[in-house]
Design a protein around this nucleic acid. Structure first.
Length: 561
RNA sequence: UGGGAUGUAGCCAAGUUGGUGAAGGCACCAGACUUUGACUCUGGCAUUCGUAGGUUCGAGUCCUGCCAUCCCAGCCA
């Protein structure tokens, strides 16, 4: 994608070697999601690797839904997965496939195995199969049905297909080695009876292939050259190769495994993410705090930032946990170039310029993005009563506080230099109003006498301000590892109670009134924000904080406290 | 105590057949610049590659032992 892809990784090394030796002529990969949940940032890594490797070496990458378990899968997930991959910017052209497209072929392959004496129908119950399998340190033992005749197996398997048996009554197993130190080779089940309608094949089938059987075959059918998956499938590779060998597949695909993505303060398990939704810890799969692609999208992350992130973290076989700050860096880097700068006050404090005419409004010129001068400028109204950020005034400030303080000057960005003359407190001692005078000679923000004003703050004209709700998001968990829990607790105890802070009384510059979902803004000196798409549909103007700006001052304050 | 894998800075991660300098990024620290305490820029940040030995003129790269961590006993993927 960019200059960083120069850095090599072991998969590139393999592909380059294969291309060099002529082992393969054209790289062909696939991304094979099971449509049983929403895609998350961990899938984005896999997508970037699968599609990225094909792209880099002028090959092809298929999108294939691995839909071999109708009890867990749904069309809803198919749709969301397609939307998310498109959003990331990858294209599979006309190569959208489903494992269910190959059910007839899988069945034939299974029959072939039976005919070769390499598969048999087992009548053991699930419970018995588990007992016969042995343990990690003890070998398993053969099922009493292991040596049925080929004819009987053929007959039984066909009757399984015809629906003559109930769920769980019989399975088809590969005949390999019950004493193998690799559990996956102890006569794995390859077909089970599942009397459940499938979202694509309806009720045509009541037996469904297992992943281990289907995967190498669908890869072979699609002429996949490099079947990339995550580390936990390493133990399955001998089985993957076994099927291809026994079924005499020519130019068989090969499987390579890489480490999946882990992020600090984040969980990737589909099951746990589902729990968050079901327990109303978040309000949906696309809650902006979720690591799902739909959540990140709603939060304001761009496809470019996520792809760049996936590029930068690299590919290896080392178990790793990437710092969330790395993701934040990537989105800041992208948005710094793209986001329009605007002024917004999240926690307003009224400022009155005593020597400014009551009913005057001036239109101040403000640059849209200094990082992209071609975006030009806009007019922002200025008047006697303004709002500034409550943080930007302090009665008794610490040293080196450059913002507004009694008797001192500060620059209102692109407007005037003002001096704090006095302030008003309510009965509880809260500052409710700051009175200033302005220097009429400093229009635009610079003083003709050349005096230096160190602090510059944002402002919004009170009578022109647009009211809006702003949602500040933070990590969903308080611990880097959400599963770092006490004796018999679970990750729920690490939920961050402040992961969402809703601010209802925010004052925005009037140009924000027309903001649309998908537009990125930098609220100057605060952070990057976007319009919440769901609230927008309901007619509400709500901004989500994508990520804050880096805050050196906060660091200094923290260090001295 | 079976099998498979992995161990390079706080984090991610390059290190091709062993050969003077242990890439790069994030984070962090120091400084410059600044009408965003942002951005940008400059400098710093592993005498050492899990560990103990061995081979070698020379090892992160080869050999041996040990240690640590992860994965596997679904009719899930």
């Amino acid at each position: 994608m960019d200059e960083t892809s120069k850095v090599s990784n072991f998969i590139q090394d393999i592909i380059e070697e294969d291309l060099r030796t002529g082992k393969v002529n054209k790289v062909h990969t696939r991304f094979p999601p099971e449509p049983n949940g929403y895609l998350h940032i961990g899938h984005a890594k896999a997508i970037c690797i699968d599609f990225g490797m094909a792209e880099k070496y002028n090959g092809l990458c298929n999108l294939r839904f691995d839909d071999t378990n109708p009890t867990k899968e749904d069309i809803e997930y198919v749709d969301s997965i397609i939307e998310d991959i498109k959003w990331l910017g990858f294209d599979w052209e006309d190569r959208l496939y489903y494992a269910s497209d190959y059910y007839d072929q899988f069945y034939d392959y299974a029959v072939t195995l039976v005919k070769k004496g390499l598969a048999y129908v087992d009548d053991l119950t699930a419970e018995e199969i588990r007992e016969y399998r042995g343990t990690l340190t003890e070998p398993g033992k053969d099922s009493p049905y292991r040596n049925r005749s080929i004819e009987e197996n053929l007959d039984l398997f066909e009757r399984m297909k015809n629906g003559e048996f109930d769920n769980g009554e019989r399975v088809l197993r590969a005949k390999i080695d019950m004493a193998s130190p690799n559990m996956n080779m102890r006569d794995p089940v390859i077909y089970r009876i599942l009397k459940a309608p499938h979202h694509r094949t309806g009720d045509k089938w009541c037996i469904y292939p297992m992943y281990d059987f289907a995967h190498p075959l669908e890869d072979a059918i699609e002429n996949i050259t490099h079947s990339l998956c995550s580390l936990e499938f390493e133990d399955h590779r001998p089985l993957y190769d076994w099927f291809l060998e026994k079924l005499e597949i020519e130019n068989p695909p090969r499987q390579f495994e890489f480490a999946r993505l882990n992020l600090t303060y984040t969980m990737m398990s589909k099951r746990k993410l589902r729990n968050l939704v079901e327990n109303n810890i978040v309000d949906s799969w696309d809650d902006p705090r979720m690591p799902t692609l739909s959540g990140l999208r709603r939060r304001g992350f761009t496809p470019a930032s996520i792809r760049n992130f996936c590029d930068l973290i690299g590919v290896s076989k080392t178990y790793s946990v990437v710092d969330y700050a790395f993701l934040e860096h990537c989105i800041r880097e992208d948005l710094n170039k793209k986001a329009l700068r605007v002024m917004a006050i999240l926690d307003p404090l009224k400022v009155i310029i005593d020597n400014y005419p009551e009913d005057l409004t001036e239109e101040m010129d403000v640059e849209n993005n200094p990082e992209a001068p071609e975006t030009g400028t806009r007019k922002v109204p200025f008047s006697r009563e303004l709002y500034i950020e409550r943080d930007d005034f302090q009665e008794n400030p610490p040293k080196k506080y450059f913002r507004l303080k009694p008797g001192a000057e500060v620059r209102l960005k692109n407007a005037y230099i003002v001096k704090c003359e006095s302030f008003v407190k309510d009965d509880d001692g809260n500052i409710i109003e700051v009175h200033c005078t302005y220097d009429p000679e400093s229009r635009g923000g610079s003083a003709p006498d050349g005096r230096k004003v160190r602090g510059t703050i944002q402002w919004v004209s009170a009578r022109h301000a647009e009211d809006a709700e702003v949602r500040l998001y933070d990590h969903l968990f308080t611990k880097e590892n959400p599963d770092d829990v006490s004796e018999d607790g679970d990750y729920m105890e690490n939920i961050n109670p402040d992961s969402l802070i809703v601010l209802k009384n925010c004052k925005l510059e009037p140009s924000l009134k027309g903001a649309k979902p998908g537009e990125a803004f930098q609220f100057i000196r605060t952070g990057y924000f976007c319009v919440d798409s769901k609230e927008y549909k309901k007619g509400n103007l709500v901004f989500n904080r994508t990520v804050s700006l880096k805050d050196t001052w906060a660091k200094i304050v923290k260090k001295h406290s």
